[in-house]
């Protein structure tokens, strides 16, 4: 290895050495900020997405029209603010929530704020796809609205929600890459601060390739999980075709849901 480095241009060798020394920690930073931001985004986004559907006039749990309008406006508003601006705007909030407005920890706050409305819309579209007949059957059996949500809507939507989860995770990961702009860490910051600003192309492309690989891994796991859990595709004869169709559908959804 050392000999290989010696034979290279010393500039490139230096960059490679930098990558080897810093990549593990950068991956860790990218990973944990993405996981935490996704987690918090679902904590708010999942119930919000459910409300956006069940709270409608002919929904399971009709809510006041004014409240529904407010929810929709808030979601649309947050989704329309560019992420770079959002990161700067929420500085004060970051200081309150995590004690600092710079660094990897601080990027979790804007990531969460950008992601929860996106997650809410993903959850909303998953639930809207559901067959209304099943909800009607549950109502006829005497289910309360809460029982319909927890025992019918959410369990029946699990495969679609998982597909959405993979989309959200990957999107949040790629947004997190921008956090280098406010002193956050991770692969994105490495590519931006070290690679781009200092013209170190090896670092730049090394970090980007790693990001691509990470996205591939998580997306594949998510789609596999979603298809594997889906009991609508479990019959022997239709298995292969069903799976293929579901994969195709999942990848379509990924494309549609591509940006927050």
């Amino acid at each position: 290895m050392a000999e290989f480095f010696v034979s290279l241009d010393p500039k490139i060798a230096e960059q490679l050495q930098y990558l080897i020394d810093n990549v593990p920690f950068a991956i860790w930073e990218t990973f944990y900020s993405t996981v935490l931001a996704t987690l918090f985004a679902y904590l708010i986004g999942l119930p919000l997405g459910v409300l956006l559907v069940v709270g409608e006039k002919d929904g399971v749990l009709p809510l006041p029209k004014a409240l529904m309008s407010v929810l929709n406006v808030v979601v649309n508003l947050l989704r329309s603010v560019p992420f770079l601006i959002l990161m700067v705007v929420v500085f004060p909030l970051s200081r309150v929530l995590v004690g600092t407005s710079i660094g990897t920890k601080a990027t979790i706050v804007p990531l969460f704020i950008a992601a929860f409305p996106f997650v809410a819309r993903l959850v909303e579209s998953s639930i809207r796809e559901m067959d209304r007949g099943v909800i009607e059957a549950a109502q006829a059996m005497g289910c309360s609205p809460f029982q319909i949500i927890t025992k019918v809507i959410l369990p029946e939507c699990v495969p679609s929600l998982l597909t959405g989860f993979a989309t959200a995770f990957v999107t949040i990961l790629s947004y997190g890459a921008m956090s280098g702009a406010i002193g956050g860490g991770g692969l994105g910051a490495m590519a931006l601060n070290r690679g781009y600003t200092r013209h170190q192309n090896v670092v730049l492309w090394g970090a980007v390739i790693l990001l691509v690989i990470l996205v591939q891994i998580f997306q594949t796991i998510g789609t596999r999980l979603a298809v594997g859990m889906d009991r609508r595709l479990s019959d022997k004869g239709g298995k292969k075709r069903g799976r293929k169709a579901a994969m195709k559908k999942a990848s379509n959804e990924r494309r549609i849901g591509g940006s927050m």
Binding site: G133, V134, E136, A140, M141, G142, P155, E156, R232
Partner: peptide, 22 residues
Amino acid sequence: QLRQARRGISMIFQQFNLLMQR
């Protein structure tokens, strides 16, 4: 009380409306 009453009135449908994940 309506929900309670509904438990005494069952319904079946053209499209069956079973829970597909159960």
